[in-house]
Protein backbone atom coordinates (compact mmCIF):
# COMPACT_ATOMS: atom_id res chain seq x y z
CA UNK A 1 0.00 0.00 0.00
CA UNK A 2 2.96 2.32 0.50
CA UNK A 3 5.58 3.21 -2.05
CA UNK A 4 9.23 2.87 -1.20
CA UNK A 5 10.27 5.14 1.66
CA UNK A 6 11.39 8.71 1.09
CA UNK A 7 14.90 10.00 1.72
CA UNK A 8 15.38 12.86 4.17
CA UNK A 9 18.49 14.82 4.95
CA UNK A 10 19.59 17.79 7.01
CA UNK A 11 22.25 20.05 5.46
CA UNK A 12 23.84 22.51 7.93
CA UNK A 13 20.40 23.11 9.45
CA UNK A 14 20.14 25.97 11.93
CA UNK A 15 17.13 27.40 13.75
CA UNK A 16 17.21 30.35 16.11
CA UNK A 17 14.51 31.48 18.53
CA UNK A 18 14.80 34.97 20.04
CA UNK A 19 18.54 35.09 19.48
CA UNK A 20 19.22 31.63 20.93
CA UNK A 21 20.40 28.85 18.63
CA UNK A 22 18.13 25.84 19.23
CA UNK A 23 19.51 23.90 16.27
CA UNK A 24 23.04 24.76 15.26
CA UNK A 25 24.61 23.40 12.07
CA UNK A 26 22.99 19.96 11.96
CA UNK A 27 23.90 17.64 9.08
CA UNK A 28 22.79 14.02 8.72
CA UNK A 29 21.01 11.69 6.31
CA UNK A 30 18.02 9.46 7.00
CA UNK A 31 18.23 6.08 5.23
CA UNK A 32 15.10 5.47 3.09
CA UNK A 33 12.66 2.82 4.28
CA UNK A 34 14.37 2.44 7.63
CA UNK A 35 13.51 3.44 11.20
CA UNK A 36 15.62 6.37 12.41
CA UNK A 37 15.43 7.82 15.93
CA UNK A 38 16.54 11.28 17.00
CA UNK A 39 17.78 10.90 20.54
CA UNK A 40 19.22 13.32 23.06
CA UNK A 41 18.32 14.93 26.38
CA UNK A 42 15.53 17.51 26.81
CA UNK A 43 16.37 20.72 24.98
CA UNK A 44 18.83 19.01 22.65
CA UNK A 45 16.75 20.10 19.63
CA UNK A 46 15.10 16.76 18.68
CA UNK A 47 11.61 18.18 18.22
CA UNK A 48 12.86 21.21 16.32
CA UNK A 49 14.96 19.09 13.94
CA UNK A 50 11.91 16.89 13.33
CA UNK A 51 9.77 19.96 12.53
CA UNK A 52 12.44 21.30 10.21
CA UNK A 53 12.51 17.95 8.36
CA UNK A 54 8.70 18.07 8.09
CA UNK A 55 8.85 21.62 6.67
CA UNK A 56 6.79 22.97 9.56
CA UNK A 57 9.49 25.50 10.36
CA UNK A 58 11.69 27.51 8.05
CA UNK A 59 15.37 27.07 8.96
CA UNK A 60 17.39 30.23 9.76
CA UNK A 61 20.03 28.72 7.51
CA UNK A 62 20.72 25.40 5.79
CA UNK A 63 18.25 23.04 4.15
CA UNK A 64 15.95 20.19 5.07
CA UNK A 65 15.73 17.89 2.06
CA UNK A 66 12.86 15.60 1.09
CA UNK A 67 13.93 13.27 -1.73
CA UNK A 68 16.61 15.78 -2.66
CA UNK A 69 14.54 18.97 -2.78
CA UNK A 70 14.19 21.63 -0.10
CA UNK A 71 11.00 20.76 1.81
CA UNK A 72 10.05 24.42 2.35
CA UNK A 73 10.12 24.99 -1.43
CA UNK A 74 7.54 22.24 -2.09
CA UNK A 75 3.78 22.76 -2.07
CA UNK A 76 2.24 21.89 1.30
CA UNK A 77 -0.13 19.46 -0.37
CA UNK A 78 2.71 17.60 -2.13
CA UNK A 79 4.53 17.36 1.18
CA UNK A 80 1.34 16.09 2.85
CA UNK A 81 1.14 13.26 0.32
CA UNK A 82 4.73 12.25 1.04
CA UNK A 83 5.04 12.63 4.80
CA UNK A 84 2.76 12.46 7.81
CA UNK A 85 3.62 14.12 11.09
CA UNK A 86 2.49 13.26 14.61
CA UNK A 87 2.98 16.00 17.20
CA UNK A 88 3.57 15.32 20.87
CA UNK A 89 0.37 16.90 22.12
CA UNK A 90 -2.54 17.84 19.92
CA UNK A 91 -4.58 20.33 21.85
CA UNK A 92 -8.21 20.35 20.86
CA UNK A 93 -11.30 20.44 23.01
CA UNK A 94 -13.78 20.23 20.19
CA UNK A 95 -16.30 17.39 20.28
CA UNK A 96 -14.94 15.61 17.22
CA UNK A 97 -15.45 11.85 16.95
CA UNK A 98 -12.46 9.53 16.64
CA UNK A 99 -13.38 8.40 13.13
CA UNK A 100 -13.65 12.06 12.03
CA UNK A 101 -10.16 12.69 13.41
CA UNK A 102 -8.70 9.71 11.53
CA UNK A 103 -10.59 10.77 8.38
CA UNK A 104 -8.64 14.07 8.54
CA UNK A 105 -5.65 12.05 7.39
CA UNK A 106 -7.35 11.56 4.02
CA UNK A 107 -7.51 15.32 3.37
CA UNK A 108 -4.36 15.51 1.21
CA UNK A 109 -5.76 12.84 -1.13
CA UNK A 110 -9.28 14.03 -1.70
CA UNK A 111 -9.44 17.81 -2.03
CA UNK A 112 -13.10 18.82 -1.93
CA UNK A 113 -14.45 15.56 -3.31
CA UNK A 114 -16.71 13.31 -1.26
CA UNK A 115 -15.47 10.37 0.79
CA UNK A 116 -14.49 7.41 -1.41
CA UNK A 117 -14.42 3.71 -0.59
CA UNK A 118 -10.65 3.95 -0.60
CA UNK A 119 -10.80 6.66 2.10
CA UNK A 120 -13.04 4.48 4.25
CA UNK A 121 -10.75 1.46 3.74
CA UNK A 122 -7.63 3.47 4.64
CA UNK A 123 -9.29 4.85 7.79
CA UNK A 124 -10.44 1.36 8.80
CA UNK A 125 -6.98 -0.14 8.29
CA UNK A 126 -5.29 2.67 10.21
CA UNK A 127 -7.69 2.37 13.15
CA UNK A 128 -7.22 -1.40 13.22
CA UNK A 129 -3.42 -1.03 13.13
CA UNK A 130 -3.52 1.23 16.20
CA UNK A 131 -6.23 -0.81 17.98
CA UNK A 132 -8.68 2.09 18.15
CA UNK A 133 -11.50 0.62 16.04
CA UNK A 134 -13.69 0.26 19.13
CA UNK A 135 -13.30 3.99 19.86
CA UNK A 136 -14.64 5.07 16.43
CA UNK A 137 -17.73 6.90 17.71
CA UNK A 138 -16.21 8.24 20.93
CA UNK A 139 -15.67 11.98 21.28
CA UNK A 140 -12.04 13.10 21.10
CA UNK A 141 -12.54 15.23 24.22
CA UNK A 142 -13.42 12.11 26.24
CA UNK A 143 -10.24 10.14 25.38
CA UNK A 144 -7.31 9.51 27.73
CA UNK A 145 -3.82 10.72 26.83
CA UNK A 146 -2.78 7.30 25.54
CA UNK A 147 -5.94 6.89 23.46
CA UNK A 148 -5.44 10.33 21.91
CA UNK A 149 -1.88 9.43 21.02
CA UNK A 150 -2.97 6.21 19.29
CA UNK A 151 -5.79 7.95 17.42
CA UNK A 152 -3.34 10.62 16.29
CA UNK A 153 -0.94 8.00 14.97
CA UNK A 154 -3.88 6.29 13.22
CA UNK A 155 -4.63 9.67 11.59
CA UNK A 156 -1.07 9.77 10.27
CA UNK A 157 -1.29 6.15 9.04
CA UNK A 158 -4.54 6.94 7.18
CA UNK A 159 -2.52 9.54 5.27
CA UNK A 160 -0.69 6.54 3.66
CA UNK A 161 2.53 8.43 3.10
CA UNK A 162 5.95 6.92 2.34
CA UNK A 163 7.30 8.76 5.38
CA UNK A 164 6.17 9.02 9.01
CA UNK A 165 7.66 11.65 11.32
CA UNK A 166 6.72 11.29 14.98
CA UNK A 167 7.55 13.44 17.99
CA UNK A 168 7.85 11.27 21.12
CA UNK A 169 5.21 8.81 19.87
CA UNK A 170 5.51 6.57 22.93
CA UNK A 171 4.42 9.36 25.32
CA UNK A 172 1.35 8.49 27.40
CA UNK A 173 1.31 4.91 26.06
CA UNK A 174 1.37 1.98 28.44
CA UNK A 175 4.03 -0.67 28.00
CA UNK A 176 2.21 -3.10 25.71
CA UNK A 177 1.02 -0.34 23.34
CA UNK A 178 4.51 1.14 23.41
CA UNK A 179 6.05 -2.14 22.25
CA UNK A 180 3.28 -2.73 19.67
CA UNK A 181 3.90 0.71 18.21
CA UNK A 182 7.68 0.19 18.03
CA UNK A 183 7.13 -3.22 16.35
CA UNK A 184 4.80 -1.64 13.81
CA UNK A 185 7.20 1.25 13.08
CA UNK A 186 10.15 -1.10 12.60
CA UNK A 187 8.21 -3.34 10.21
CA UNK A 188 6.63 -0.70 7.94
CA UNK A 189 8.08 -0.12 4.47
CA UNK A 190 7.86 3.64 5.02
CA UNK A 191 10.75 5.77 6.18
CA UNK A 192 10.23 6.48 9.88
CA UNK A 193 11.87 9.29 11.83
CA UNK A 194 10.95 9.58 15.50
CA UNK A 195 12.18 11.76 18.32
CA UNK A 196 12.57 9.28 21.16
CA UNK A 197 13.28 9.46 24.87
CA UNK A 198 13.73 5.80 25.69
CA UNK A 199 17.22 4.61 24.80
CA UNK A 200 16.30 0.95 25.35
CA UNK A 201 13.52 1.16 22.75
CA UNK A 202 15.79 2.99 20.32
CA UNK A 203 18.47 0.31 20.79
CA UNK A 204 16.06 -2.52 20.22
CA UNK A 205 13.94 -1.31 17.30
CA UNK A 206 15.76 1.40 15.34
CA UNK A 207 18.07 0.91 12.35
CA UNK A 208 19.74 4.28 12.62
CA UNK A 209 20.25 6.78 15.45
CA UNK A 210 21.10 10.48 15.45
CA UNK A 211 22.35 11.63 18.85
CA UNK A 212 21.79 15.34 19.46
CA UNK A 213 23.21 17.51 22.20
CA UNK A 214 22.70 21.28 22.61
CA UNK A 215 21.46 21.60 19.02
CA UNK A 216 24.34 19.73 17.41
CA UNK A 217 24.86 16.19 16.13
CA UNK A 218 27.20 14.29 18.44
CA UNK A 219 27.02 10.96 16.63
CA UNK A 220 24.99 9.24 13.91
CA UNK A 221 24.90 5.64 12.74
CA UNK A 222 23.61 2.18 13.70
CA UNK A 223 22.69 1.84 17.41
CA UNK A 224 25.83 -0.14 18.26
CA UNK A 225 28.10 2.71 17.17
CA UNK A 226 26.04 5.52 18.78
CA UNK A 227 25.05 4.03 22.13
CA UNK A 228 28.53 3.82 23.62
CA UNK A 229 29.34 4.40 27.31
CA UNK A 230 31.60 7.32 26.40
CA UNK A 231 29.00 9.18 24.29
CA UNK A 232 26.14 8.47 26.71
CA UNK A 233 28.14 9.78 29.64
CA UNK A 234 29.16 12.86 27.70
CA UNK A 235 25.60 13.69 26.55
CA UNK A 236 23.32 12.41 29.31
CA UNK A 237 25.74 12.54 32.25
CA UNK A 238 24.96 8.96 33.22
CA UNK A 239 27.04 5.85 33.62
CA UNK A 240 26.13 3.39 30.88
CA UNK A 241 26.91 -0.29 30.59
CA UNK A 242 26.46 -1.55 27.04
CA UNK A 243 26.42 -5.25 26.13
CA UNK A 244 25.94 -6.58 22.65
CA UNK A 245 22.97 -8.92 22.51
CA UNK A 246 22.94 -12.01 20.21
CA UNK A 247 21.11 -10.13 17.43
CA UNK A 248 23.92 -7.58 17.28
CA UNK A 249 21.95 -4.80 18.98
CA UNK A 250 23.23 -2.98 22.05
CA UNK A 251 21.66 -3.70 25.43
CA UNK A 252 21.94 -0.50 27.46
CA UNK A 253 21.82 -0.21 31.24
CA UNK A 254 22.00 3.19 32.87
CA UNK A 255 23.06 4.29 36.32
CA UNK A 256 23.71 7.73 37.85
CA UNK A 257 27.26 9.08 37.76
CA UNK A 258 29.06 9.16 41.08
CA UNK A 259 28.81 12.78 42.31
CA UNK A 260 32.42 13.96 42.31
CA UNK A 261 33.76 17.38 41.37
CA UNK A 262 36.12 15.78 38.85
CA UNK A 263 33.28 14.24 36.82
CA UNK A 264 31.67 17.67 36.37
CA UNK A 265 35.00 19.10 35.26
CA UNK A 266 35.58 16.34 32.72
CA UNK A 267 32.09 16.92 31.33
CA UNK A 268 32.73 20.59 30.82
CA UNK A 269 35.92 19.97 28.90
CA UNK A 270 34.33 17.30 26.73
CA UNK A 271 31.54 19.68 25.71
CA UNK A 272 33.78 22.54 24.60
Amino acid sequence: MRGPGTAHAARSLAWTASGRAIVDGVTFAVPPGRFTALIGPNGSGKSTVLRLLAGLRRPSSGHALLDGSDVTALKRRDVARRLAFVAQETVSDLDTTVSEVVMLGRAPHRGRSATTEEDIRAVGQAMAAMGVTALADRSWASLSGGERQRVNIARALAQQTPALLLDEPTNHLDISHRLDLMEMLSRTAATVVAALHELDLAARYCDHLVLLHAGRVVAAGPPITVLTPRLLEQVYQVRATVNQSPDGRPDVRLAPLPRTPSSRASNDTSRS
Partner: peptide, 20 residues
Amino acid sequence: ARHLDALAFGRETASTLGFS
Protein backbone atom coordinates in the same frame (compact mmCIF):
# COMPACT_ATOMS: atom_id res chain seq x y z
CA ALA B 1 -14.82 23.25 5.39
CA ARG B 2 -11.92 20.76 5.25
CA HIS B 3 -9.43 23.46 6.22
CA LEU B 4 -11.61 24.23 9.24
CA ASP B 5 -11.75 20.56 10.25
CA ALA B 6 -7.96 20.46 10.18
CA LEU B 7 -7.43 23.89 11.80
CA ALA B 8 -9.67 22.91 14.70
CA PHE B 9 -6.98 20.34 15.37
CA GLY B 10 -4.14 22.82 15.46
CA ARG B 11 -2.08 24.74 12.91
CA GLU B 12 0.68 22.17 12.83
CA THR B 13 -1.77 19.37 12.02
CA ALA B 14 -3.42 21.51 9.34
CA SER B 15 -0.02 22.23 7.86
CA THR B 16 1.02 18.57 7.70
CA LEU B 17 -2.33 17.71 6.12
CA GLY B 18 -1.44 19.96 3.21
CA PHE B 19 -3.28 23.19 4.11
CA SER B 20 -1.75 26.65 4.44
